[in-house]
């Protein structure tokens, strides 16, 4: 029943799989090394998309939280919490890949760069969100309170992105895509692979999100059946 209602999803899975293979090949074979860096610059094809997905998952979670507060459908809570769980995973991936790159280029795994600070805050918010969920027994209360917290946290994030870099000096590469400096600009092939990777990781995110939502739905249905019997 869960599978048959969306036959296009099979096509989507195959498409994502093939697309990601091309992204991986492209990032290693097609894109040239960035000037001034050794091969480490290739981390941009994985680190940035993963960080992008972490923020996107957070946005999706906040949108479904707002929907939950408006309509009070448990379905929306499943989407919000599943997306938050994925966001947590991708935020960890972004932290680890960034930290490894920082060790190579800046000489240390961690130096409280503003971007590092904001990803840590994102991790803390996700962790707090799940700590809150695990501390409440009733399903409705859990859904409602975590939705409120998710929105509150989402209101805070823009301040973190604008405030922290203003106060602390950053070494993190700033915006190499839209910059006007010709030297810092991405070359066309790097740019193509970069955007392909961004798109690919977004598809992967959607794929895992659907899986996670299905699992949560089945779990919920099982608890409902247990309650009845």
């Amino acid at each position: 029943m869960l599978k048959n209602d969306r036959p296009w999803f099979h096509g989507f899975k195959i498409f994502t799989f093939v697309w990601m293979i091309f992204v991986i090949i492209g990032s290693i074979k097609v894109a040239p090394e960035a000037t001034g860096f050794v091969s480490t610059s290739r981390v941009v094809f994985f680190h940035v998309p993963v960080a992008w997905v972490a923020v996107l998952a957070f946005l999706v979670s906040a949108v479904f939280s707002i929907r939950y507060l408006r309509k009070k459908q448990m379905e929306d809570d499943i989407w919000a919490s599943s997306s938050a769980a994925l966001g947590f995973l991708f935020a960890i991936l972004a932290t680890v890949t960034g930290s490894m790159w920082a060790k190579h280029e800046w000489g240390s795994y961690w130096n409280w760069d503003p971007r590092e600070t904001s990803i840590v805050i994102l991790l803390l918010i996700y962790a707090a969100y799940f700590a809150l969920r695990s501390a409440i027994d009733s399903q409705e209360t859990k859904a409602q309170l975590s939705a409120v917290y998710s929105i509150l946290a989402f209101v805070t994030v823009p301040f973190l992105i604008f405030v922290v870099p203003r106060v602390i000096f950053t070494l993190h590469p700033q915006n190499p895509i839209f910059t006007n400096e010709p030297k810092q600009r991405m070359t066309p092939s790097i740019r193509w692979v970069f955007f392909a990777s961004l798109f690919g990781f977004t598809l992967v995110y959607y794929w895992i999100l659907r899986l996670k939502v299905d699992i949560e739905r089945i779990k919920q249905r099982m608890t409902e059946m247990e309650d009845k019997s």
Binding site: I121, L124, I125, A127, A128, A131, L132, A135, I136, D137, T141, L145, V148, Y149, L152, A153, T156, F159, L160, V163, V164, V167
Partner: peptide, 27 residues
């Protein structure tokens, strides 16, 4: 108001508050 509805209130309060207070603390 949020944590008064949950269990393990004392620990949760600081954990939930800190990320949201951070912009205030930094400035």
């Amino acid at each position: 108001a949020i944590i008064s509805r949950a269990s393990a209130r004392g620990a949760l309060f600081a954990v939930l508050s800190f990320p949201i207070t951070l912009p205030i603390l930094v400035s």
